[in-house]
């Protein structure tokens, strides 16, 4: 029972992990992107549509195409949304909160529209591809508890964790990470040091959005088994909350997202609760996010604060 719970928690956590890893990259560069729910939705929708055409073209005979093409399409869609966000906030200097919210409205709507449109066809066939997401590198069947909990997942779960670690290393140990952090902390200084602030913000936003979008695809194709549900908006918002929970560290996002995932599914794993009580238990992830938010704001030291220039636009002429 506990093993099953932990396993599910970890499985779900990949959605949050992709989302918050992406958002951390974006925020480290100084952008507060409230459009993540939209990005995840559109990314997942486009990925699923790609999946649909792949399944129709190849049946289930070409696992590589069934995996690679939808993932690529999702990444690309995410990056395009990121491009839109950066264009509006960096080049057109619009307020980041407003653009983010508008992108969420737009993205969630577009995803819903596309999916509804597809569902008039035989969209359900994408569930057939789900097993490829699930089975690759999945060691289920082994009786070892460790394998059961940690190693019986689909490939994207591992990718999420590896990605978080890689991003953490890039941010803290490489020059590009140092430069990006400088851009998010003090763009004027970064600019004076010869770093192209605009370029860094564009690229980090696009990359971050692409990674977040992958979380959407994972959620639908792996966690939901290929059945489309309109749940990504909520997951997107939680991913943004998770960024604060993890104090802008992707490595901490791994346990953080496990906890969020666990809280999210907790109600289904407690014996003897009614459906009504389940809904109350489901408040937990949100309540915990708020509590963490409050605690970090009261006791937060300098190094757990958000990037200093978060949410602020930077224009060189205003030096």
């Amino acid at each position: 029972m506990i093993a099953a719970f932990l396993k599910s928690a970890i499985r779900l956590s990949a959605t949050f992990l992709f989302g918050s890893t992406g958002e951390i990259i974006i925020e480290k560069g100084g952008h507060l992107n409230l459009g993540i729910p939209g990005v995840m939705s559109v990314g997942a929708a486009c990925g699923c549509i790609a999946e649909f055409y792949m399944v129709r073209a190849f049946g289930t005979s070409a696992p590589f195409m069934l995996l690679a093409i939808p993932i690529l399409v999702t990444l690309l869609t995410g990056a395009l949304m990121g491009l839109l966000f950066s264009f509006l906030t960096v080049t057109l200097r619009a307020n980041q909160n407003v653009v983010g919210l508008a992108m969420t409205t737009f993205g969630v709507g577009l995803a819903g529209y596309l999916i509804t449109k597809m569902q008039s066809q035989n969209f359900i066939i994408i569930t057939r591809a789900s097993k490829f997401y699930l089975n690759l590198f999945n060691l289920a069947g082994n009786d070892n508890w460790f394998v059961k909990i940690f190693l019986s997942h689909g490939i994207l779960v591992y990718i999420a964790i590896i990605l978080a670690i890689v991003v953490q290393i890039i941010l803290s140990k490489t020059r590009v990470g140092l430069n990006l952090r400088a851009v998010g902390e003090n763009p004027a200084t970064a600019d004076a040091a010869g770093i192209n602030v605009t370029k860094y913000r564009y690229v980090s936003t696009c990359v971050g959005c692409a990674i977040s979008a992958l979380g959407g695809l994972f959620c639908i194709m792996d966690y939901m088994g290929g059945n489309w549900e309109y749940i990504l908006e909520g997951y997107g918002w939680l991913s943004i909350a998770l960024v604060i929970f993890t104090m802008w560290r992707p490595a901490l996002a791994i346990p953080g997202s496990f906890i969020f995932g666990g809280l999210y599914i907790l109600s289904s794993y407690i014996d003897g609760v009614t459906f009504a009580q389940m809904e109350i238990i489901n408040i937990l992830p949100y309540a915990v996010a708020i509590v963490v938010l409050i605690i970090t704001s009261i006791f937060g030291k300098k190094n757990v604060q958000p990037p200093a220039a978060l949410g602020l636009s930077y224009f060189r002429e205003e030096r």
């Binding site: 140092l178 952090r181 400088a182 902390e185 003090n186 004027a188 200084t189 970064a190 004076a192 040091a193 300098k302 190094n303 604060q305 200093a308």
Partner: peptide
Amino acid sequence: FKLVDVFTAAD
């Protein structure tokens, strides 16, 4: 001064 507050001097 043009310095990033949360970085070390060396960085």
